[in-house]
Amino acid sequence: MTNTRVLLLPGWLDSGPGHWQTRWEQLHGWQRVQQHDWVWPRRGDWMAQLETTLLASPQPAVLVAHSLGCHLVAAWAAHSAHTDRVRGALLVAPPDVDAPDLPPQLAPWRPARRHRLPFAARLLYSSDDPFGSVACAEALATDWGAEARCIGPRGHLNAESGLGDWPEGAAEVQRLLGLSR
C-alpha cells in the first residue's frame, strides 16, 4: 500500500547507525519517531510524540517498534482515540519492563501495559534476549493479541545481533503493509 507510512519506534537510547531501524530509514525512507529524551524516557512524553507524529499526516501507518518501542505501542494504543490510523505493528524484542533489575531510567514504564491491541500485530523475539525471556515475550504477545515468532538465538535483535539490513524483518513489514482495513 503506497499510501501507508511506516513509522519506526526505537527503544531506549535510540537506534544507532548499524541498527536495522536506522538502515531501514536510509534504505526505504521510513520515518523515525524522534523522542525528546532517549536517555530518561518518560512514557507519557513518548506517547505524546507518537500521537503527534501519527496525526501530522492523513495517511495511515504501520508501526515498527524495537525494544522499549514495543511498550510504547501498547501504552499508546491503550490511551489513544486514534488507533484506527494504524494498520498494524511489528513488535521486535520487547524487554521485560517489570523485571526487578530494570535500570532506573525505565522505571516510569512499569507496569507493562497489557491491553489487547486494536490492530494486527506480529511480535518477533529471540530465544536468548538478555532483556526479555521467551516466557515474557510470549506472554506479551498473548496479552497484546499479537502473532508471535521466535527467530532463534539472536540476542536483543539489534546492531550487535548482526542482522544488517534484516530482510526477514522487512518482509514482515511488507506483509503488514498489505493488510486491508
Rank of each mutant, 00 (worst) to 15 (best):
S161C: 05
D45N: 07
P153M: 09
G88L: 00
S126I: 05
H115C: 14
R23I: 15
C150H: 02
H19I: 10
L179E: 01
Y125S: 01
L163V: 01
I151C: 14
W46E: 04
S180R: 13
V6Y: 03
P118C: 10
V33E: 07
P100C: 11
T22G: 01
G69S: 08
V86R: 08
N158R: 02
Q31S: 14
A61K: 09
L124E: 08
T2G: 13
V6W: 10
L8S: 03
V6K: 09
D143C: 12
W12A: 03
A137D: 01
L72F: 07
W144F: 06
L50V: 13
C70K: 02
A146T: 04
S80E: 09
L179M: 03
V64M: 05
L8W: 09
V97M: 09
A171L: 09
D129L: 06
L106E: 08
L163T: 02
H71Y: 02
R114E: 15
P41C: 04
V33T: 11
A135I: 03
N3P: 07
S15L: 12
A56G: 15
A120T: 14
L68D: 08
W38S: 08
P10D: 13
P153F: 00
L13K: 14
A65V: 05
E168P: 00
C136N: 15
Q21K: 10
L176G: 00
W144C: 10
E147C: 15
G164I: 01
E160T: 13
A137H: 05
G155K: 09
E160V: 10
L117R: 04
D101Y: 13
R175H: 11
A146V: 07
P118Q: 08
R87H: 07
L55F: 00
G11Y: 09
P95K: 03
L176E: 02
N3I: 05
V33R: 02
S126N: 07
V6D: 07
P103Y: 03
C136L: 14
L117D: 02
Y125K: 02
F119K: 00
R175S: 01
A99C: 11
H28R: 11
A65K: 10
W46S: 03
A121Q: 05
G132S: 00
A89V: 08
V64T: 01
Q174P: 00
P118W: 12
H115M: 06
F131H: 11
R149Y: 01
R43I: 11
D101F: 12
G44S: 15
R154Q: 15
A61N: 08
W40Q: 15
G164L: 00
G169K: 00
Q34N: 11
T83I: 10
L27V: 04
W166K: 00
A61I: 07
D128G: 06
S133V: 10
P58W: 04
L72Q: 01
A48E: 12
R42N: 13
N158P: 08
R114D: 14
D14K: 11
Q105S: 13
R23P: 10
A74K: 07
V86M: 06
P111N: 03
Q34G: 12
M1G: 07
P60H: 00
L117V: 02
P104C: 06
P60M: 05
A146C: 06
P95G: 04
E147H: 15
R113S: 12
I151V: 15
C70R: 06
L124G: 00
E147Q: 15
P17Q: 13
R149K: 13
T4S: 07
Q26P: 01
H36Q: 15
